[in-house]
């Protein structure tokens, strides 16, 4: 019975996600249509040439027709070609070339940031008002307030320029080593946010009546923390962590620019500036897909972590 409920729930969420994606795609199409300027390197092109190019790429057709053609092509995995950034290169190729490195660095930053952040926040909560708590709060404030590009500059100076421990710029021949400094620069914000959030969540949970009851029942402190406090405090943390992770995976323009990483973040910004419509739509679509997919996954994860949510869903 529970499985049927689960399948129905997944099906409902999948349809909702697809509708959301379709709406996002349409809004994007609409917005790009009203953007001034053309997607071509047209400084020295005649009006006739621009006309030919618009016709060649189907940009002279009505918006609705273009949208339908795009959706049809997209279903077959064709996201069109780049008009100016990498003239005539397929967007699918461009994304498949830049996405892996952005996802890798984003995931690394997310894992490092959230693990350290959770540990820092939990220990600070357990040792509330101690020196360690003050230190954790200090790190959190610093992590939130110092922008990643400042950290990137500091890390590069110390670890690359001064001591030559890591490459200053991304190099495919030293792929993993090249990602360490970008990961560290990126993870601080996540680390700080998660540390602050997990500390306050832990403190809140620790003051709940059921924790007092469990404590009164005489279970060990270790069991109390692991079985009751952490489990309950994790749900809101996951809610915050999921969009943070997607944000990191979509690529950070600043970090990619700083370390010359051929990632999706810098490609996205360049595409927006160049009016390269297909690239903008393609990346936005992938970003939305990642975001919606992650939120969907998180929703399912809630059920696994907290039986109360499962029961509530079943009730509905």
């Amino acid at each position: 019975m529970e499985v049927i409920h689960m399948i129905r729930y997944i099906g409902k969420r999948t349809i909702l996600s697809l509708i959301t994606l379709f709406i996002i795609l349409f809004i994007l199409f609409l917005m790009l249509n009203f953007m001034p300027g053309s997607p071509f390197n047209d400084t020295k092109m005649s009006h006739e040439q621009l006309k030919i190019l618009y016709h060649e790429y189907g940009l002279d057709r009505p918006l609705a027709e273009r949208f339908l053609i795009y959706v049809k092509q997209m279903l077959t995995g064709n996201l069109g070609v780049s008009y100016s950034l990498q003239t005539n290169a397929t967007v699918t190729n461009m994304i498949s070339h830049t996405l892996p490195i952005s996802v890798q660095i984003g995931l690394q930053a997310s894992v490092v940031g959230s693990l350290i952040g959770i540990v820092l926040g939990f220990v600070a909560a357990l040792r509330k008002n101690s020196f360690f708590d003050s230190m954790a709060t200090g790190i959190s404030i610093l992590g939130v307030s110092v922008p990643s590009f400042v950290l990137a500059l500091c890390f590069s100076y110390i670890f690359s320029y001064k001591y030559n421990l890591f490459p200053l710029l991304y190099s495919s021949s030293e792929a993993f080593r090249s990602t360490i400094l970008p990961t560290l620069s990126l993870c601080f914000f996540t680390l700080a946010s998660i540390a602050r959030y997990s500390r306050s969540e832990m403190i809140e949970v620790m003051e709940k009546d059921y924790i007092r009851l469990a404590d009164a029942k005489g279970i060990t402190r270790f069991q109390l923390v692991c079985r009751h406090i952490i489990r309950n405090a994790m749900i809101p943390i996951i809610t915050v962590l999921a969009p943070l992770t997607v944000d990191l995976m979509a690529g950070s323009l600043v970090i990619e620019k700083a370390f010359s990483i051929p990632g999706m973040g810098s490609l996205y910004i360049n595409a927006i500036q160049a009016n390269d419509y297909n690239v903008v739509i393609g990346i936005s679509f992938i970003y939305s897909l990642m975001f919606i997919g992650t939120m969907f996954f998180v929703d399912l994860l809630y059920g696994l972590i907290d039986p109360r949510i499962r029961i509530a869903k079943r009730g509905k």
Binding site: F131, S134, M135, G138, L153
Partner: peptide, 23 residues
């Protein structure tokens, strides 16, 4: 606690500034 936090923050800011000026 506030004092300690502020001290930490101050030292960190000074540290970042020194590194930046070295750059």
């Amino acid at each position: 606690k506030v004092k300690k936090t502020m001290e930490l923050l101050l030292f960190s800011v000074i540290g970042v500034s020194i590194i930046l000026s070295l750059v």
